[in-house]
């Protein structure tokens, strides 16, 4: 057990492990690229959808059921399925990661919108604000903390799941996990797993710090 952790420490800290085209630095950059791009695409789809459902109050059924559907969908199966359908391209990775992130973003955006005090919305309308003004100047700012929570949750899940990109022969930190599993090299597997966990936790902490700075004037 001790030996294993010592080797793991060596693996994570050795200079040659970090350099080169299959070094940790490259894999880390790839991993971040998959995760951030997928979360951005998911936000571009999920945010307008959640805002629309929350603003109009129509389609709440969709918003609620989308989240349990998203939870039930096995990501591994989805990746393999899209891979077999599309061949060797980046499609499987992005389709699976976006499908994972959209439900979390839609449901949290919707939850943030429904949590806005109806009296506040009525007051805004009473002052003569139009629908889009109420949405962008009143509802959206008030719903923002919960929307941010949704984005954070989505990003964490995407970072964790981007590991499977390596399963369909792409890069990212998952490379170490799958290569290690194939080579029965436990140190490499654990090294990859630790790195993914560290990236996920670091991004979550960074976003929550950003959230605190952005909304510090709100805290009671």
């Amino acid at each position: 057990m001790y030996e294993l952790f010592k080797n793991l420490g060596d693996w994570l800290t050795s200079g040659e492990q970090w350099a080169g085209p299959d070094g940790i630095a490259t894999r880390l950059a790839e991993h971040l690229q998959y995760s951030l791009l997928a979360t951005l695409i998911a936000a571009a789809i999920g945010l307008p959808l959640g805002l629309l459902i929350g603003h109009t109050g129509k389609g709440a059924f969709v918003a609620i059921n989308l989240s349990s559907f998203g939870r039930a969908l096995p990501t591994v199966g989805l990746v393999v399925l899209v891979f077999l359908a599309s061949g060797l391209s980046m499609w499987p990775v992005y389709v699976a990661l976006v499908a994972l992130a959209v439900p979390a973003i839609v449901t949290n955006t919707y939850a943030g919108m429904t949590a806005v005090d109806p009296d506040v919305k009525d007051a805004a309308r009473g002052q003569g604000m139009r629908g889009h003004q109420v949405l962008f100047q009143v509802e959206l700012p008030l719903a923002l903390p919960l929307i941010m929570t949704g984005l954070r949750l989505a990003l964490i899940q995407v970072v964790a799941t981007a590991t499977i990109a390596a399963y369909v022969s792409f890069g990212g930190l998952g490379r170490y996990v799958f290569d290690g599993l194939a080579q029965r090299d436990l140190v490499q597997v654990m090294g990859g797993a630790v790195l993914v966990a560290v990236v996920a936790i670091a991004l979550d902490l960074a976003l929550s710090a950003l959230q605190r700075v952005l909304f510090r004037h709100r805290t009671a």
Binding site: A160, T163, I164, A193
Partner: peptide
């Protein structure tokens, strides 16, 4: 915190 650890990583870390 436990939730932020990727599932594949949890399984792998349990291997030893």
């Amino acid at each position: 915190v436990l939730f932020t650890i990727p599932s594949i990583a949890v399984f792998v870390l349990l291997l030893p």
